[in-house]
Design a protein around this nucleic acid. Sequence first.
DNA 1: ATGACTCGCAACGCGAGA
Length: 259
Amino acid sequence: MTTIATWNVNSVRARIENIKTWLEKASPDILLMQEIKCQDEQFPAHEFEAMGYHCLIKGQKSYHGVAILSKQEPTLIMNRLPGEDEDEQARYLEADVGGIRAACLYLPNGNPIATEKYPYKLRWMERLRKRMSDLLAEEIPAVFGGDYNVCPTDDDCYDPVGFSNDALCQPESRAAFRSMLNLGMTEAFRTVNKTPHTYSYWDYTGGAYQKDHGVRIDHFLMTPQAADMMEDCVIDREPRAQTKASDHTPVILTLKDPA
DNA sequence: ATGACTCGCAACGCGAGA
């Protein structure tokens, strides 16, 4: 059994105690971490290494940044998403961990939609679709986990009308997400859990978590070879209820070992 | 409700997040 988690931690340094507490309890084999908000040399790798994790880091100053923690030693495949050489934002990390390809992604939010941020998001999604297409052709078990910043359907949003102008819920964002599924990728959570209005993110403002005013934007997409191994996928709400929580909570994918 | 929280920062108010 292999457990892979994805979690947008909203600053690894501000969240270090929350993350360590959760790692001790959940003990995932792999953690795909987004929004570390620091440069590589500021990443508290020693703290995770002391808990038995290897660290791959793609950081940048202040914003964005992704990391992969794994119990098995990872092999770095790439630390940027191909297709736009001038894109300097640290949003993608891909590694091989024990024969499983694991991609950690932090897809651009895209708000406000009237700015350059929105077409950047859509271009980034097209680049991601291309990367998925390439890995599908390799016919290997590959898992793309991360903060997709896409709310796939109205059932994944507490207030679809209120979000009608939000980049997370735009028809183009949703179509780009579906185009990844149409390639042959399987979205893990919805495959095993049909309960609508099950969220992975709640805003800090207005007591959103207590009111369950959330959105589901953190996802795992799997190639067929990985989907065949899927045992379960759950959202662990507990970290979101803690003091000094991230606004996102972990999503955990469990894979059976290869037959 | 041009609102609300929380982060990082050559910071002490601002941009960004979603």
